[in-house]
């Protein structure tokens, strides 16, 4: 995200103002990976429980640095936003996710 919230974010791309995306619409469709469905499900449940509104999800995505926004996949962006909101609200502690990830790897999961 830009440091100035008044500036147009990269996500506000109607009409391709950054002259970056005007190629043919890619038509290949991928079957969602299990982890993507998991992220979608987590987001829906958090929304239902009032723990992350759709707009909190959107802001979490819009605030990603421009190049991350452009590079990450759709559900990778969702994932980052969910983690951001959970840490912001103290539901997750900073570093907790990294520790859990390391634990899962150590377990050879």
């Amino acid at each position: 995200m830009t440091t100035n919230p008044e500036q147009r974010g990269l996500h506000d791309m109607g009409g391709d103002p950054d002259h970056r995306w005007s190629g043919p619409v890619p038509r290949g469709e991928h079957v969602l990976a299990p982890w993507e469905k998991e992220v979608d499900a987590i987001r829906t449940i958090l929304g239902r429980k009032g723990l992350q509104t759709a707009d909190e999800l959107r802001l979490g995505i819009e605030r990603l640095p421009g190049e991350d926004y452009a590079r990450l996949s759709y559900y990778e962006r969702w994932f980052r936003s969910i983690v951001y909101t959970m840490e912001l609200k103290g539901i997750l502690r900073p570093g907790q996710l990294a520790a859990k990830l390391a634990e899962l790897k150590a377990r050879g999961a």
Binding site: M1, P5, D12, G14, P17, L59, E62
Partner: peptide, 12 residues
């Protein structure tokens, strides 16, 4: 809306 990081009015 001044200073709000999230708006839903597109620039165009």
């Amino acid at each position: 809306s001044v200073g709000r990081p999230h708006i839903r009015t597109p620039h165009y």
